[in-house]
């Protein structure tokens, strides 16, 4: 194992450009595969956990009694459906909105470490673009989805869609700010904006070091993902399907899928920033010790996903004015309080 790493390191030192290119291509391929398959599993979990919580069965026909292949069947159906573009829409914007949403998600995924490999007493983080400001970059790239939502709603030429789009943007603005402040608070304690370094610096989980920030971040995250109680932009009882009312077939599928991509990535971000990422005791079993950081991260991510799913089944939806009220009047001041706390604690222990 050491030999292989030595060869790779040597190659990287000799031909840095080619090395970066190869790593980039491999990374992009692995990334899209991992993220999209992961999101499919998240959709499956969403349906299955929800139905369990509601005393239903959920998907249980396609792929055995757990309905594991249901998503594949749904995807095939969406791909083969007629692609309807209504005549009144702003066609360019309408067509590009789902693509922008997908691109935005992949931009987020590029900077997120999906865990680390523990080789030879050292952690090698699995991240495609290990940039210095990755925490801030990820938080910003997550909000590209809101732009796509606005494009989709605005171009649809539909009253329900435009209301959904407006609601989506109003909500995004109100919650991106406290979310950003929370990321800064974490960075202040870690003395870095790099997600890998933030994880490595968490000897105590940030959830315990700054509990207020933890709560604000998870509320802002649920808002960002547009799930109950913050799903005003697609509240079907009020505005049919919100911004995606006029979409059908695979374009609708893409928009829908990106929500779950973001769900997965947001949950990973949550685990990285506040739950100690892949930190945890190394399992002293050969081979398992290599991936043991990933096992820890996976467990934390699953808990976050599970929590967000259960929130959907148990809470009422807030009204849009209550959402913005909560965002500006409570979340933002409290996140600033949390920033002050982080500065004090961070400089005391520095």
């Amino acid at each position: 194992m050491d030999g292989i790493i030595e060869i790779i390191t040597q190659f990287a030192a000799q031909e840095p450009a080619i090395f970066a290119l190869i790593i980039g291509i491999i990374g992009a391929a692995v990334l899209s595969a991992v993220v999209n398959v992961g999101a499919m599993l998240v959709i499956w979990a969403d349906r299955k956990v929800m139905s369990d919580f509601c005393n239903r069965f959920g998907p249980n026909r396609v792929g055995g009694r757990w309905g594991i292949l249901q998503l594949g069947a749904d995807a095939i159906k969406l791909f083969t459906k007629e692609d309807v573009i209504p005549s009144g829409v702003d066609k360019g914007v309408y067509v590009w909105a789902p693509i922008l949403a997908s691109a935005g998600t992949m931009l987020v995924a590029a900077a997120i470490p999906f865990g680390a490999l523990h080789i030879g007493g050292k952690d090698y983080p699995l991240v495609v673009a290990n940039m210095d400001i990755s925490a801030f970059y990820v938080e910003a790239a997550l909000s590209i989805m809101s732009i796509a939502v606005f494009m989709a709603g605005y171009s649809s030429n539909n009253k329900y869609s435009i209301l959904g789009a407006f609601r989506g943007v109003a909500r995004m603005i109100a919650y991106e700010v406290p979310m950003g402040v929370c990321v800064i608070s974490v960075a202040v304690m870690a003395h870095s904006l790099n997600l890998v370094e933030i994880v490595q610096s968490q000897t105590v989980w940030n959830a315990f070091a700054q509990p207020l920030g933890f709560i604000i971040f998870i509320i802002a995250l649920v808002t960002d993902l547009g799930r109950v109680p913050f799903d005003q932009s697609e509240a079907e009882e009020e505005i049919i399907c919100g911004y995606s009312t006029e979409y059908s077939g695979i374009r609708w599928g893409l928009l829908y899928f990106q929500e779950y991509n973001n769900f997965l990535l947001g949950s990973i971000l949550m685990a990285l920033l506040f739950l100690g990422g892949w930190n945890g005791p190394i399992i002293p079993i050969p081979l398992l010790d290599i991936i043991s950081p990933m096992i820890w991260l996976l467990m934390k991510v699953i808990i976050v996903i599970w929590f967000i799913i259960l929130v959907r089944a148990s809470l009422f939806r807030l009204r849009i004015d209550q959402v913005t009220d909560l965002g500006w009047k409570w979340m933002l001041p409290l996140s600033l309080v949390n920033l002050g706390w982080a500065v004090i604690i961070g400089s005391y222990f520095a």
Binding site: M50, F53, C54, N55, V228, E237, A313, F316, R317
Partner: peptide, 18 residues
């Protein structure tokens, strides 16, 4: 009525139906 303000995934609705 509760599903109207909470979304169809709202669990108490399922329990009421049950």
């Amino acid at each position: 009525f509760l599903t109207l303000i909470a979304g169809v995934g709202f669990a108490p609705w399922q329990y009421m139906i049950m």
